[in-house]
């Protein structure tokens, strides 16, 4: 029996790698920023799933840090793109 958490995490990691394609292609920096933002969201899901899969509850803290802090870099990028920095 394969652990469903691992399978889900694996699928999400594949999606992360697909988002890499948009990061590579994206004609404008805004596209890339969107890709990175997406990856942040997916990464949080991956981290939560892996934390459950490892049966380590404390690992969820990493996901919270990630969820909150990746937002800051997104904001910096957006502010720079808007020419407001």
């Amino acid at each position: 029996m394969i652990d469903p958490w691992y399978v889900a995490a694996f699928l999400l990691v594949i999606l992360v790698c697909l988002a890499l394609v948009r990061l590579f292609l994206g004609p404008t920096p805004a596209d890339r920023a969107v890709a990175v933002d997406t990856v942040n969201t997916l990464s949080v899901a991956v981290l939560i799933l892996l934390g459950v899969a490892y049966q380590q509850i404390i690992f969820i803290d990493v996901a919270i840090v990630y969820a909150v802090l990746s937002f800051v870099s997104t904001l910096y990028i957006a502010k720079y793109l808007g020419g407001e920095l």
Binding site: T28, A30, A33, L81, G82
Partner: peptide, 11 residues
């Protein structure tokens, strides 16, 4: 995403 959208439009 609001911030990115705004930044993209402003840029």
């Amino acid at each position: 995403s609001h911030a990115i959208a705004r930044g993209a439009h402003r840029s």
